[in-house]
Design a protein around this nucleic acid. Structure first.
Length: 294
DNA sequence: AATACGGGGTC
DNA sequence: GACCCAGTATT
């Protein structure tokens, strides 16, 4: 597997030798549920504009949200800026190198803490993302896809496979992830190109279908609050800070340009706007008549 | 353990 | 149109 990675790793910008720990943290936050191909250009522009935590901490949140653009889940952008503030003020501008300290940062969970410890600082950490879980689940358990939730036993098992040597463990982590991203994919795995195929329990079992499939439900999108929130945010990103949006204008944008009253759920745009205000992604003028990015 | 949370590419 | 993507926080 390590040989396979050495020969097949993608040339991703954040893997360049000179990438700072901060650059690694930025890319890991961006990569939470957003595919590599969309993160790549966004990360390069981001790092050019805000190379250090202090730079991002000093930025206007509205500009941060505009730069985040359509990467999705814009709460991540606000949390990333909070990370920048905490790192700049509490950690002397240095990205922490222990998982416990990283976990304390906003928007940093188990995966990101391990990934930053490993890929930014060369530490030995159990990096368990969707790719690693799928690869191990197939090779070791013969299951097509990992269980919906990650439990303690699965984490312990993954820890048992991690090489003891720190440098080797980093290559192991990124290698398994890369294998899952390029070969052992969820949809159409290329087992003929897999260095682990000969010892893969899933291949040996004839690549059986996912047993959880009956319980997995597709993530709805059309007509959801998330879609409406997305439309409202897109509308506000396009406006300069000096020209806030009126309430009716914003609710219409949330309804996709239509009259909210014509929606199957007429109250949906107003609810979505309220939730954006709660999240701090939108701020209202004192009279509640105008809205803009924070 | 379940849900909310974006958005776009792909089969 | 369903499915998937280097997850996290909350309930």
């Amino acid at each position: 597997m390590l040989e396979w990675y050495a020969a097949n790793a993608r040339d991703l910008p954040w893997r360049r030798p000179g990438t700072s720990p901060w650059g690694v943290l930025v890319t890991e936050i961006m990569l939470q549920q957003t595919p590599v191909v969309r993160v790549r250009p966004a990360w390069e522009a981001w790092m050019e504009r805000w190379p250090t935590p202090a730079d991002l901490a000093a930025a206007a949140p509205s500009d941060v949200l505009r730069a985040w653009d359509r990467l999705g889940y814009p709460r991540r952008a606000l949390r990333l800026q909070e990370c920048a503030r905490v790192i700049a003020t509490d950690h002397g501008g240095r990205v922490p190198d222990t998982e416990d300290e990283l976990l304390a940062l906003p928007g940093v969970g188990a995966y990101t803490a391990a990934a930053v410890a490993a890929f930014a600082h060369g530490r030995r950490a159990v990096v368990l993302d969707t790719n690693v879980r799928r690869v191990l689940g197939r090779v070791m358990d013969g299951r097509a896809l990992p269980a919906p939730s990650l439990g303690r036993p699965e984490r312990a098992r993954a820890a048992g496979h991690l090489p003891a040597d720190a440098e080797r463990s980093v290559r192991w982590n990124v290698g398994v992830m890369e294998l899952g991203a390029l070969v052992c994919t969820a949809r159409a795995p290329r087992c003929e190109a897999c260095p682990l195929a000969e010892r893969c329990a899933w291949v040996a079992a004839g690549r059986p279908a996912d047993e959880h499939v009956h319980r997995r439900r597709a993530q709805a999108w059309h007509g959801t609050d998330r879609q409406v929130r997305g439309r409202i945010m897109a509308h506000l990103r396009a406006l300069p800070d000096e020209a806030p949006a009126g309430r009716d204008e914003l609710l219409a944008a949330g309804a996709g340009g239509a009259d909210p009253a014509a929606l199957a759920d007429p109250g949906q745009p107003a609810r979505a706007l309220a939730s954006l205000l709660e999240d701090g992604l939108v701020v209202a003028a004192p009279d509640g008549a105008a809205y803009r990015l924070p």
